[in-house]
Structures are given as structure tokens and as C-alpha cells.
Design a protein around this nucleic acid. Structure first.
Lengths: 251, 251
DNA sequence: TATCTGATATTTGTCAAACCTATATTTAAA
DNA sequence: TTTAAATATAGGTTTGACAAATATCAGATA
């Protein structure tokens, strides 16, 4: 192995090797879709055993940096990075953060309002027919009284995703994955009981029309109203809970 | 093993087990800091071998979901999720996306402008002395003509981080990790050659003073000017490159 | 000749058993 | 009572083997 002793001393050879390969990928020494040496060759060249190499490779696979195929012509390949894969990673971690109460709903709503306002403004400039139709389709779905709460929330997420996509800004879309995949589901999970679907759909409708007319003021106003409504619903849910708690305490 | 056959059939037992444990963590069946069964017990209860269990655990460790300690009272523990760890994961992936040219600089600058404008506005409301001092310290450092380009860029990143921290909004800070750890270094890497430090520091100074005075208009104006200057620098760099290319073609 | 079939080689996936290393606890000695 | 050594328990690593998937190629068959 080429590593110095003091780099190895605090256990974790597999971790070191993973970092080594990862940096090779990140700074381009290993190109996309390029095949890594076989696990045996890696083991030999690092001077470690194959299972240890495999543990290192599994770490990379977990980060969607490589994938593996069996057989001749198989091997471990550098993955083409895709925002989709990144979104999954972000979602899990962000959901966990929200789950342990690292953030409170008011903060989340402020963040949603500020960032989605940007999206409304950019979407008014750059929206295309495809995006408008995607939003209209979700609105139509949300008008159906028969769909379940889960389906309604899923459609809500897709509506906001379409809004974000309409901005046509890749970096922003990347950032908004956190909102779409984590903050929106969380807010939905908390407030969907007290929220009236018709109200939400009406706000969605207003946003859609405003985007269609490239009316930035109306779009952001509708979004602001939507999130104010969500916040009110949340406070109503809080009140209901504390009222129930009081009643239980009295009885 | 409790998994059904058709869930296992297409190889990847380790992957399945990792997903299994991960979902247990995400939906709270395994609480934070709780110890998992020993690797041997996991192997037994899943009906697989210990190396395979370890591959699964390494996947989770790579996602910062668990960490391990040796010895009695050691074991694998569910990690308390921290934004820092998440930021590293996001950064790597986002950097990769930028590295392969998935985004262009104009998009990135638009995204930076829009999101950092939010931060200026919220920071004007919520900034505290600590944050202002952190920004002032970086400005002082950036005035030093002797520091290297790397150090200047690192200080630039810390300045913007202090700006984001001053918003006091956790969810927004999470999102802004992508900007701070990935977009800003990328823009710096591309334009720092043609950029004059004095100009940049002057913009930083204006932002700092505006925040200090809670002057939202001036803060966002300074930010806008800063990013316009960055964009101009980028275009200048592009021009210089194409001019060099022309000269080379003529000679 | 063209095409299908099966043997073969290569590479990852999994397993088993052992040993090394770190560390908390317990025991024994000073 | 304090300190030092033994011990038990956990993860960390190695060796060696076999299983499963799959591209390639030789040979049989139409």
C-alpha cells in the first residue's frame, strides 16, 4: 500500500481506500463510465484483501458514485452523476433532520415561501407549454374527490416539482430537491388533516393561471396565500392538539 | 430472513439488508444513538454471513446513518443526523454535476443571486453581533495582500457562510450548503484569475455595512453588483481564452 | 453458410473460519 | 486505595473457496 503509516493508524483501511478512489473520481482521474480495475487488482495494488476492497466499493456504491456488473466485461464502473440519485440521498437525510425536530414548521414555511417565490418569478419568464400542462394535469387530479390523501399529497409534490422545473435553472432545481422531496412532504404530513383540499387546489389554480399569463405579481401572491393558509392550518392543528390535551388532563 | 423470495431474487442481498435497516432508522423503529444487534446477531437473524452484513453496514456508514465502535459496549450505532455530514454528501455530488458541465456559469450565477438575495433580506432581520463579527473578520483577512489565492477563496466561502448563518433559518441553511460548498467554489475556480480582490472585498464591505444597518435595499444591491462583477469577470475570462485561441490559430 | 447451443473464462456476489485490534470490565497486586 | 494486568466482547481484516451472472467462442445443426 502506498499510504503512510500515520494515515492508516486510526483504523479504517476500507474508509481510506474509499476516500482515495472517491477523490480520483471527483478530480477526474477516473472518468465517467470508466471501468475500475478488478477487485483483485485493486486489492493487490492497495496491498489489502478483496473483502476490504469490497467494503470500500460498497461505500462508493451507496453514494451512487459507482455501480457494478458481473461477468467478463463486468466490473465496477464510475456512474454518471444524476440529480435524481442525489435527490434520494438528500431526501433521506433531510427527512431525518426534520424528523428529529431539528427544524420547526415556521422555519420550513419561511424557507418554502422565499425559495418558491423565486421559482414563481423565474417560471413566469421561462415556463413552456409542457410544464403548464404538467401542472394542469395535477390540478385536474387534485379536483377528483375520490383519490386518497396519500395520492393528493403525492400530486401536490408533483405540482410543485413542475413549478420548479419550469424555472429552467438546473442549479436551482438541484437546491429545490430539498424542498420538494423533504420539506413539502413534511408540511403535508403535518397539516393535511385540517387542510381543505378545495382551498389548496384553488391556490394551485391561481398559480397556474398566473404562470400562463406571465403575471409575476399574481403568481407570488397566490403562493404567499397558499403558504399562509398552510401555516394557519398548522396552527389550527396545534390548537386542536393542545385543546385535546387539556380535555384529557381535565377528565 | 424475513424477506420474500421475489424481493431477493435479483442479486444484492447486502443492498436489501441495507435498505431494510435504513427504513427502520428513517421511520423511527431504530432510534438515534441506539445500538444495533452485533454483526453476528444480524447475520444470524437475516440468515446471511457476517461479511455480507458488513457490506450492508458499510453502505449505511457511507451515508452517515450509523457509526461503529469496537470493544465491549461497542457496536454499530444509529447516528444523530447532522447538517454537516449532509453537506459533505451534497457537496460531492453537486461538485461532480458541475464538474461534468451539467450546469453553466450563467445558470449558477442566477441561482446564486436569487438565493443569496433571500439570505441578505433575512439576515438584515435576524443578524446578530456574532455573525457580523465573523464577516468582518473575513473581510479583514481578505484585505491582506499576502494571502494566497486559495486562502482568499476559502475566506470568500466563509464570508458567504456567515451571511447564510445570519439568516437564522435552519432549513434555508441546509439548502444553501449547496451554494456555499459547491457553487461558490466553482465560480471562484473559474473567475479568480481575472478578478480583482479589491473590488470583491469592497462589495463584501458594502454587504457587511448594509447588514449592520439593516438596510435591505443596499444589501441586495451590493450583492447584485458583486455577482454582476463576477459574471463580467467570467465573460472577460471567456473572451481572453477565445482571443488566445485565435492568436494561436493565426500563428 | 448461417444460426443456435453449450462450454468456458472472467468478474462480481456470498460464505466460512480464523485471527488481529481496540476497549470496558474485572481481578490481582502494590 | 490505587494501579496494573488479565479477560471478555465487539468490530476490523485476512485467507480461501464456491456460487452466480454474463460475454465470448467453438462446435453442432439446419
Amino acid at each position: 500500500m502506498n499510504l503512510r503509516y500515520d494515515e492508516v493508524v486510526r483504523s479504517g483501511i476500507a474508509k481510506q481506500v474509499a476516500e482515495n478512489i472517491k477523490s480520483a473520481i471527483l478530480d477526474g482521474r477516473l472518468k465517467i463510465d470508466e471501468r475500475l480495475p478488478t477487485e483483485e487488482d485493486l486489492a493487490r495494488s492497495f496491498g489489502i484483501s478483496r473483502p476490504t476492497v469490497r467494503e470500500a466499493l460498497k461505500r462508493l456504491a451507496a453514494q451512487n458514485l459507482i455501480h457494478s456488473r458481473r461477468g467478463p466485461l463486468g466490473g465496477n464502473f464510475v456512474m454518471r452523476p444524476d440529480p435524481e440519485g442525489l435527490s434520494k440521498a438528500i431526501t433521506g437525510a433531510a427527512t431525518l433532520l426534520v424528523g428529529i425536530g431539528a427544524f420547526d414548521i415556521d422555519e420550513i414555511i419561511v424557507a418554502r415561501l422565499e425559495t418558491e417565490t423565486i421559482c414563481c418569478r423565474l417560471a413566469c419568464e421561462n415556463r413552456n407549454e409542457e410544464g403548464l400542462q404538467a401542472m394542469a394535469a395535477e390540478i385536474a387530479l387534485q379536483r377528483d374527490q375520490d383519490i386518497s390523501d396519500e395520492d393528493f399529497c403525492a400530486s401536490d409534490v408533483r405540482f410543485h416539482r413542475a413549478l420548479v422545473d419550469s424555472t429552467g435553472n438546473g442549479p436551482l432545481k438541484l437546491m429545490m430537491y430539498i424542498v420538494i422531496e423533504s420539506f413539502i412532504p413534511i408540511t403535508n404530513m403535518i397539516v393535511f388533516r385540517v387542510r381543505e383540499r378545495r382551498q389548496v387546489v384553488a391556490f394551485h389554480q391561481r398559480i397556474h393561471e398566473a404562470l400562463s399569463n406571465r403575471d409575476v405579481g399574481e403568481a407570488t401572491a397566490a403562493l404567499t396565500n397558499l403558504l399562509a393558509y398552510v401555516r394557519d392550518s398548522y396552527n389550527a392543528a396545534l390548537d386542536a392538539r393542545s385543546r385535546r390535551a387539556n380535555e384529557q388532563a381535565q377528565s
